[in-house]
Nucleic acid binder design. Structure first.
Length: 592
RNA sequence: GGGGGUGUAGCUCAGUUGGUUAGAGCGCCAGCCUGUCACGUUGGAGGCCGCGGGUUCGAGUCCCGUCACCCUCGCCA
């Protein structure tokens, strides 16, 4: 070991100790006769002093040192003179009086200094990720990630879960997200797919009798990216045998509790709040609502259908809904321009428009369409909304889906701009009883809401074929602050039900046999009831770290176009490689 | 694929109505400086104004196209 201590551990107790420190030069303050070097490593920063008591050679050498050089310093821990201690630094009471300085490696002037105050743009950070990762903030993020994953592993180990690795090279399934494909060299024209999740493998591990499985699993989905979505991401994948929904949720609640306690010092009461999917859509318009604030959606369809107001009437008569949000005290908080912006938001979400109404001191509505909502209809609406003078009311009249989308968008915007919640607060909850199926716009048939292996509620088993839309799944999503932080289901454990579901999804018996024959066989070979969940580790770390981007908790993330600015991946490959794989590329001709 | 934002010195940014030689802070280089910690101070170097085309006497600025990055809708079982 080249060093005796790290740059973060020396304190007044170490006074007089002879120490050796290694690290990066964070900053140099050259006062000619005395030179201060801030030495930085993973653990912190320590001030090194070269002064008049040192030889001219050492002083001269210290003068040449530049930021980001890697140096070794030997010296004595000394107290800083009165008035020169630095309370901002953990090591600020002491300094190391240098007796020996060795340059382990010089550094070219860095594109940016990790110790600088202003953050470079993300493009520069990603191109020079090794420099970006030297920044204490980024190191903190990765330490946090490590701690969270460690808690997860310990927690499940305590509960006798077994960590099993599953293949990266698997079989492509056209359902779900787009696959990342890997060509087979030994079987030209055939491809592996990288896992979207280890779903089937973990189910097979249950059928193999492992009972409790856990894995920190890398997953791949070739879909467009967002601030909280990367093409490759990490899930804490969990599966259990002989369980019902409540058992899986209970286990995860224990993990939430332990993580919140150890990471945030927060006591989370369990069981966590549970909302059904239907309730979520009615009250919040979304299946992962942020429950840190109110602004709940109120259904005004019955009240509005009695009105002569064309917009409301049309929506109600065509089977749509009239729904609104009351913004307490909102009447005076929004300018006309801001109300226009809210309208634009609603329109962007698919709504034909937004009705906004202010409740005047006299109790009447005012606003562009208020004249349509006078008298009894207006009174009924206000009563349903519990609207009081000074309130703002936003109403969307449209199909249920559109009203959900528009009102959810508005609710989110209002919650943030009105500061209705403490951004540092954390709220955990469950959303349960998801529909089994949703209409698939592409095929016109049914598509799995979760995945094709999800078990319906026992009560809905009969409705599976007669009324699929009504079927609810034994599914549960963990929601943190309006973010889907995990989701799971109880799985189908008998082949008959599984075949029924495949059929409903338009997967013929032959297709099912070809793609999932092994699963159907395994289901017939003594499959225990089982279920599980997958937690999005990247999102957990982002949320617990109160960060805005998933990229800040991933060491080497990709851009929105799924490229790696540091390595240049993806890149063209040599023709020889393609020949070996039996692949010919079709590059679109350059535009004229 | 759609909508929005950004792109000017190594970094962060300013740049007026189209007008002479494109600026600032930080960083870099050099000088001065024995207690600083975002050290101070003096001087200096450093520009494909993302790229291509156009309009114009004249373009960082206006127009068209294009690329990259970010946010977002679709998409993400």
């Amino acid at each position: 070991m080249l060093r005796s201590h790290t740059c973060g551990e020396l304190r007044a107790e170490n006074l007089g100790a002879h120490v050796a420190l290694c690290g990066w030069v964070d900053r140099v303050r050259d006062h000619k006769g005395v030179i201060f070097i801030d030495l930085r490593d993973r653990w912190g920063r320590t001030q090194v002093v070269v002064g008049p008591e040192n030889s001219a050679e050492l002083l001269a050498l210290a003068k040449t040192v530049r930021p980001e050089w890697v140096i070794l310093v030997r010296g004595t821990v000394g107290a800083r003179p009165d008035g020169t201690t630095n309370p901002k630094l953990a090591t600020g009471a002491i300094e190391v009086s240098c007796q020996h300085l060795e340059v382990l490696n010089e550094a070219e002037t860095p594109v940016f200094q990790p110790g600088a105050t202003d953050l470079p743009g993300e493009e520069v950070r990603l191109e020079n990720r090794w420099l970006d990762l030297r920044r204490p903030a980024m190191q903190e993020n990765l330490f946090l990630r490590h701690r969270i994953v460690k808690i997860m592993r310990d927690y499940f180990d305590d509960l006798e879960f077994i960590d099993v690795e599953t293949p990266m090279l698997g079989r492509s399934t056209p359902e779900g997200a787009r696959d990342y494909l890997v060509p087979s060299r030994l079987d030209h024209g055939a491809f592996f797919a990288l896992p979207q999740s280890p779903q089937l493998y973990k189910q097979l591990l249950m059928m193999a009798g492992f009972d409790r499985y856990v894995q920190v699993a890398k997953c791949f989905r070739d879909e467009d990216l967002r601030a909280d979505r990367q093409p490759e991401f990490t899930q804490l994948d969990v599966e259990m045998s002989f369980v019902e929904s409540a058992d899986v949720m209970g286990v995860i609640e224990g993990l939430v509790q332990r993580t919140a306690r150890e990471i945030l010092g927060l006591e989370v009461p369990v069981p966590l709040p549970r909302l059904t999917w239907d309730e979520c859509m009615e009250r919040f318009g979304h299946d992962a609502p942020d429950l840190r604030y109110g602004l709940e959606i109120v259904d005004l369809t019955p009240e509005a259908s009695g009105s002569e107001f064309r917009v409301f009437k049309a929506a109600a008569e065509s089977g749509g809904r009239v729904r609104g949000i009351r913004v307490p005290g909102g009447a005076t908080r929004f300018s006309r321009k801001e109300l226009d912006e809210l309208t634009a938001l609603a329109v962007e979400a698919g709504a034909k428009g937004l009705v906004w109404l202010k409740v005047e001191a006299g109790g009447e509505f005012s606003g562009p369409v208020a004249k349509n909502l006078v008298g009894e209809v207006g009174a009924a609406l206000r009563a349903k909304l519990a609207a009081e003078p000074g309130d703002l009311v936003l109403i969307v009249a449209d199909s249920f889906d559109v009203s959900c989308k528009a009102l959810h968008t508005l609710r989110k915007r209002l919650g943030a701009t009105l500061g209705l919640y403490d951004p540092n607060s954390m709220h955990f909850s469950w959303v349960v009883d998801f529909p089994m199926f949703a209409h698939d716009a592409e095929s016109g048939g049914w598509a799995s809401m979760h995945h094709p292996f999800t078990a319906p509620r026992a009560a809905d088993l009969q409705a599976l074929e007669s009324d699929p839309a009504r079927c609810r799944a034994q599914a549960y999503d963990l929601v943190i602050n309006g973010s889907e932080a995990g989701g799971g289901t109880i799985r189908i454990h008998d082949s008959a039900t599984q075949e029924k579901v495949f059929k409903l999804l338009g997967i013929s018996a032959e297709m099912a046999r070809e793609r999932f024959g092994f699963l159907l066989d395994a289901l017939r070979s003594g499959a225990p009831p089982h279920g599980g969940i997958a937690l999005g580790i990247d999102r957990w770390v982002m949320l617990l770290g109160k960060l805005d981007s998933i990229r800040d908790v991933i060491a080497f993330p990709k851009t929105q176009k799924a490229s790696d600015l540091m390595t240049g991946a993806p890149s063209p490959v040599e023709a020889k490689q393609l020949v070996e794989l039996g692949i010919r590329t079709v590059v679109p001709p350059p535009k004229a």
